[in-house]
Design a binder for these strands. Sequence first.
DNA 1: CGCCCCGTTGACAAATATCAATATTTGTGG
DNA 2: CCACAAATATTGATATTTGTCAACGGGGCG
Lengths: 276, 276
Amino acid sequence: MSTSAKNSVSTPVDCAKCRARVDGLCAASHLSAAPVVARYKSRDRHVKAGQDVIGIGEPCDAIYNLVEGWVVLYNLLADGRQQILHFGLPGAVLGFEPGGGALATFGVKALTDVVLCVVPRENFGRALRSHPDIGMRLAWLMSRDRSLSFSHLTSIGRHGARERIAHLLLELFIRCRAQWPGHRIEEMHLPLTQEHIGDATGLTGVHVNRVLGGLKRNSIVEFHYRRLRILDPDKLVDAAGIDPHLLLPWTQRLASEQGARGNASAAAMAHRLAAA
Amino acid sequence: MSTSAKNSVSTPVDCAKCRARVDGLCAASHLSAAPVVARYKSRDRHVKAGQDVIGIGEPCDAIYNLVEGWVVLYNLLADGRQQILHFGLPGAVLGFEPGGGALATFGVKALTDVVLCVVPRENFGRALRSHPDIGMRLAWLMSRDRSLSFSHLTSIGRHGARERIAHLLLELFIRCRAQWPGHRIEEMHLPLTQEHIGDATGLTGVHVNRVLGGLKRNSIVEFHYRRLRILDPDKLVDAAGIDPHLLLPWTQRLASEQGARGNASAAAMAHRLAAA
DNA sequence: CGCCCCGTTGACAAATATCAATATTTGTGG
DNA sequence: CCACAAATATTGATATTTGTCAACGGGGCG
């Protein structure tokens, strides 16, 4: 079951154009943390789609920076079902678990083929001590994840299926846009099945399908075989049950940071969504 | 609505016996962070039960260390319902939001009368720069909160009402025990109503009541007028749908840290629960 | 004493899951 | 390029869980 054989290296990642500098640990504001992390990393790691990056219960002996691809953080139930906890995009920090070196309390699986930058735990400790900014940045990233998780809790706990699904699609759309500003609304690739959407929203795949049907009939969004098409951003925001007053802070929380481009892009997105 | 008038000070908190040293920011392992924080804090703040510590949408200009009492982190819905995101016990760090100084994306309300230690944001930045351990500790705390939030996601997303409620009661019980080791199982005070339990588990107060009735009929737990009584720990773990294999890691995640007493106590708790 | 918050209970409605059958799309090997 | 297999999506009938509305009980506190 533990498919995380340590399949390693090939082309080393070029820190100069690494995605982790856009939204990850290496995006520290004061110093450019990229060369710092480069000094402490041990190697790269490639994982095939569908394989575990970190299996549930495995010891976490290293920090991973997700450089390329999508991962999913998940929990398994006794009966084989799963709950998806978080979708990780490039820049995500993986393997930093409460209780240094403890066993992972949730799994991390590659949704696509994935490239990771590996920093052994001892090295990471050293990096932190000599570069306090990294600790701060890490705290910030963890806090942002917590906020996202909180908004998922609200969605799952208090919203109906339609709102949950709209919320998730909107979130993924905005997070994608923040990373790859080129994409058009009309046709975007998400490496998910409807089953994944169900696992993330606490619904059945079957029910997700029905609700998606409704959203399509209302000309709001289409999601079909990993292709997302947003037909009406306004209605989508509405269907997601997001107070339009809180839309801007919400989008900002999803996008990178206080840094110039990050915010500008997220704000533009929010406005485009909120306006016409 | 924003009830967080800055009601201030009276008896200054004595850092020497502050609860934040047991499980909070001041529990840094290497250096004793207590004197450090003491140097940067500006004052104490007292908030009455029921009042907001931080209202939703308020700017966060300071970090709060929860010194005494319980708080609840919550989100409001358009129709007035709420989702409880987290219960904060002494040691909790509040007001550290993604996007320094940004508006709070969730509220913090006092469940009991509460005492907080206030560190203005600028001071906090300075403290971090001169004491890197604090940044690390903060990242660790945030990461632990994220983990807890993940387990709530799993509970709400994939478990039935009975399991969710059992899970929450067990969590609160264990967290209380870790802080106040004196308490007996047979009669413990939790400053909650059944409505709160519903808001935390994504259920209605009415339904919570019914399920609690069932748990009592099965001689598992009683919860009545803020008093919790665990009748059968084993059955409770079972009802919570926790894989007994994962019980120990789970309790460790709830309790303080790798520090001697923390772990020992949590492990003992887990064993006591798992055994007789 | 009386009020108010909290808890309790019942009848009914709505949302979602489950089970099962069928259709569509993608990917793969000739 | 085609044929086929596997994965994914779609649809219907029915069961289960949970929510809603409404009424009532009980206990603490002024």
